[in-house]
């Protein structure tokens, strides 16, 4: 799954200068990319633009030749449902659902069966928490449920925002290993983080700093 950024410029209201600019950048199919940079430089914003949750103020994002910014909201929704999986920085589990139900929630089309959901939880070492309400899970456990929600349906594009921020070294390693394994050969994994522990896993690294990718 190839992603092409062209002339992207993001500027929020009240900002004198754009948050960042991307001239022309490409993420090749099968890539494992790390986007790093200090807080507030726009890593999350870039992931949201890639997922079609936000529109850039200028420029376009094309995925496999299809411009996301030209799609309607419904089409973007359908695209995310079939192609992309997102791990949010704030996890966004539904507290009144169990861990297992939250994993199933990540599958609007219903392709994730209970078995697959349990398998995903097992891979992340939290299968014993399957029937616990998300309210009652620790932050680290919630983070792993959020990752399980994505890997259970093996999307072709995984966009993970700070997936290890609340995890100890062992679990951070487990999560990264699972994300790598769950992204297929042609699949693309984009991780935004400032967690230095995961750097060594990536060959492709974008440094988002000073409003530019270096």
């Amino acid at each position: 799954m190839q992603i092409l950024y062209r002339g992207i410029e993001v500027q929020f209201r009240g900002m004198k200068d754009p948050l960042f600019r991307i001239g022309e950048r490409r993420i090749e199919s099968g890539a494992r990319l790390l986007i790093r940079g200090p807080s507030g430089t726009g890593k999350t914003t870039l992931l949201h633009i890639t997922a079609g949750l936000l529109d850039p103020h200028k420029g376009s994002v094309a995925i496999d030749g299809k411009e996301i910014s030209s799609l309607s909201e419904g089409e973007r929704c359908r695209w995310r449902r079939t192609t992309a999986g997102l791990v949010f920085q704030k996890l966004n589990l539904l507290g009144h659902l169990t861990a297992l139900e939250n994993v199933l929630l990540g599958s609007p089309a219903g392709e994730t069966t209970k078995e697959k959901a349990r398998e995903a939880l097992t891979k992340l070492g939290i299968d014993d928490l399957a029937n616990q309400l998300a309210y009652h899970l620790s932050l680290g456990e919630q983070q792993r449920v959020a990752v399980a929600r994505v890997i259970a349906r093996s999307p072709r594009l995984i966009l993970a925002d700070e997936p290890t921020s609340s995890l100890d070294a062992r679990n951070a390693e487990l999560v990264m290993q699972t994300l790598f394994q769950s992204t297929g050969k042609d699949g693309t994994l984009v991780v935004a983080t400032h967690d230095e522990r995961v750097l060594t896993r990536f060959r492709d690294i974008w440094n988002l700093e000073g409003g530019e990718i270096r």
């Binding site: 419904g74 449902r81 997102l86 966004n92 539904l94 929630l105 609007p108």
Partner: peptide
């Protein structure tokens, strides 16, 4: 609202 946003972000249609 946040839950609705989450569902939409996960790919749930407005109809659902």
């Amino acid at each position: 609202k946040p839950e609705l946003g989450l569902l939409r972000a996960l790919g749930y249609s407005k109809l659902t």
